[in-house]
Nucleic acid binder design. Structure first.
Length: 589
RNA sequence: CGGGGCGUAGCGCAGCCUGGUAGCGCACCUGCCUUGGGCGCAGGGGGUCGUAGGUUCAAAUCCUAUCGCCCCGACCA
């Protein structure tokens, strides 16, 4: 039996000044965690107990589909050079050197280590499929740790990796994970959604994220309440309402109009008496990459055309460009390409690349929302002038059309046409069909049935352990504290004798605690010599799902039971207390 | 890395502008009192004022540098 009076549960009346989000404030106030440095947290008694319950659930469900490994956190440089990520990861990877001068990195994930085992050990299709997982610390030198436990530099992650002989096998492994994740997050009592994710630079054929809605999150999720459509805003699309094109003016050929001092989309549209939807927005960017061999910097102009009222989605742009980083053009670069100041840019009079591989010529990407549109208005590449009668594909030829548009709330669902919503959310899990990236770069090969050497196809799947706790706190808190689901709470029940100097109350409380413990519950006895108010406040703060008040009513043979999440209170007979909790909590172990 | 803010007792803060014995609330310790929502009274302990250097008779306070932490942005397989 755990006695509060003997435990270290340093609750605080006030939250530390630098805590911003609810989960951070409450987990510190409730004595679950303490900060060591930016993005580094210590787990105290309550935090670690909750943590252990979470990892136990994860382990139990993962053991049904895979095998747990324990892997080093220190990785030799050569391993990450083999996959090409030693340089890709840049500053995000913690690096160090041992006494012999060998370069090492602290693992950010374990694709390399797992694939290394696979390439050394797997020889035959008969050994496949394999699912290997681990629950261990990951290290990322985040440019900016933030939001308490949401973005940190050392964190616990369950990551697993699947190796299959073919795409059909990968689908099976992927679906096993999807099911396991649903069981895990259901058991953890989270309200989550499964959304389509951007597979980004990693390519691959499919990727979904498990998200919990909370204002503290860092991701934007587009979803439809009418059907099951849900996607990360980096990936999401929408149906657009039909837009009336303008009537061609004059002979229908492009002609310049004088627009003195009218630079922004809004200004030009108002000046010409048209909707921004009939205006082309021209964005001037540069890609910059460092040649791996020569170390020289190569840059290339990338010009984007969007509908006037649309915003560019950087993840989509990155995908369209094969994940090259971009930056806004500098003024000199704009002048050099367009011979015009910003504010009057457009696609005319410039020789655009015919494809992305077309030398170093400037690339013109046109958003799909402009495909098929007619008689639009763009800048004239001449100060104080715009051009009318512009029709993409006719008046100019783009390098490519691409989906570059950021979905906004209120647009129509691409599946069913209902109104889309956008919420901020935190990512608690991610499942991802990796494909051949690591098998190929690191040389994992097995023989298939025909004795032919083939690459195993991989998937990778992650769960942020502390994010489960954080999300649970975020999704159920009030001014007094938070309410954890019993499955991940450090204790099931806290027993609160209102006055420990009253031996009847204390002994009754002890008796109840003992009996509940025998019945298989995790019980915390608040035997501190404190006033009832103090103990009630602390109990509310630390989030234990049920509290048993042992007070005056013991003379009538009853105690009060308070449910933390609903704050509902009811009397229960002391004699039947085990039965009561066997009903409201999951069956005892 | 760009922009902003903050480092004074365990936590929350005042003092700094205008240099002169370092303060308040909570927490903590002792005693009394109290016991259904962070009680009351009395007494008490605890701070190199982030660090280093400078100016000055004198620096928490002014100057310089530096470190740390937080927020916005960039970034986030």
């Amino acid at each position: 039996m755990h006695r509060w009076s003997e435990l270290f549960i340093p609750t605080l009346r006030e939250a530390p000044a630098d805590a911003e989000v609810a989960s951070h404030k409450f987990l510190v106030r409730a004595g679950y965690i303490r900060q060591l440095a930016a993005g580094l947290y210590s787990y105290l008694f309550l935090g670690q107990r909750s943590f252990n319950k979470i990892t136990a659930i994860v382990r139990e469900e993962m053991d049904k589909i895979g095998q747990e490994f324990y892997l080093p956190a220190l990785h030799p440089k050569e391993l990450w050079e083999a996959s090409g990520r030693w340089s890709v990861m840049g500053e995000n990877m913690f690096r160090l050197r041992d006494r012999k001068g060998t370069d090492l990195g602290l693992g950010m994930t374990h694709e390399e280590v797992m694939t290394d085992i696979a390439r050394k050990e797997l020889r035959s299709y008969k050994q496949l499929p394999q699912i290997w997982y681990q629950i261990q610390s990951k290290f990322r030198d985040e440019p900016r740790p933030r939001s308490g436990l949401l973005r940190v530099r050392q964190f616990m992650m369950k990551d697993s990796y699947s190796f299959d002989i073919d795409a059909a096998g990968l689908d099976l492994s992927y679906n096993k994970h999807r099911d396991a994740y649903r069981r895990i997050f259901d058991r953890c009592g989270l309200k989550y959604m499964i959304i389509q994710a951007d597979s980004g630079a990693m390519g691959g054929s499919g990727s979904e994220e498990f998200m919990v809605r909370t204002p503290a999150g860092e991701d934007q999720v587009v979803s439809c309440d009418a059907c099951n459509y849900a996607a990360n805003v980096e990936k999401a699309t929408s149906k657009l309402d039909h837009v009336e094109d303008l009537q061609p003016e004059g002979d229908g050929k492009p002609f310049e109009v004088h627009t003195p001092g009218q630079k922004t989309i809004e200004e030009v549209a108002r000046f010409l008496g048209v909707s921004p939807k009939n205006k082309i927005k021209t964005l001037a960017l540069m890609t910059e990459e460092t040649d791996a061999k020569t170390g020289k910097k190569k840059s290339r102009a990338v010009i984007l055309l969007m509908r006037g009222d649309h915003q560019m989605n950087e993840a989509k742009l990155s995908a369209a460009l094969g994940s090259k980083a971009t930056r806004p053009m500098e003024e000199a670069e704009i002048t050099q390409l367009f011979h015009s100041p910003a504010g009057f840019l457009g696609p005319l009079g410039i020789e655009w690349a015919k494809s992305l591989n077309d030398g170093d010529k400037a690339v013109l990407l046109v958003d799909k929302a402009l495909e098929g549109r007619r008689d639009l208005i763009s800048g004239a590449n001449k100060e104080d002038f715009h051009v009318k009668n512009i029709t993409p594909g006719v008046t100019f030829v783009p390098t490519a059309y691409a989906d570059l548009r950021r979905v906004t709330a209120g647009e129509a669902c691409p599946n069913c046409g209902a109104v889309l919503r956008i919420d901020t959310a935190v990512e608690i899990g991610h499942i991802f069909k990796l494909g051949y990236k690591y098998s190929e770069s690191m040389g994992a090969r097995v023989l298939d049935q025909n004795g032919k050497e083939v690459m195993p196809i991989m998937g990778c799947y992650g769960i942020g352990i502390e994010r489960i706790l954080t999300a649970a706190v975020e999704q159920a808190n009030d001014e007094n504290g938070f309410a954890l689901p019993s499955s991940i709470s450090p204790f099931d029940v806290v027993i609160t004798p209102t006055n420990v100097k009253d031996e009847v109350l204390l002994n009754t409380a002890k008796d109840i605690a003992k009996r509940l413990e025998t019945a298989g519950f995790d019980v915390l006895l608040d035997d501190r010599d404190e006033r009832p108010g103090v103990k009630f406040k602390d109990a509310d703060l630390v989030g234990i799902p049920f509290r048993v008040n042992v007070g005056k009513k013991v003379t009538e043979g009853t105690v009060e039971i308070v449910e933390r999440s609903t704050r509902q209170m009811q009397d229960a007979s002391i004699v039947g207390i085990e039965q009561y909790f066997q009903k409201v909590l999951r069956p005892a172990r």
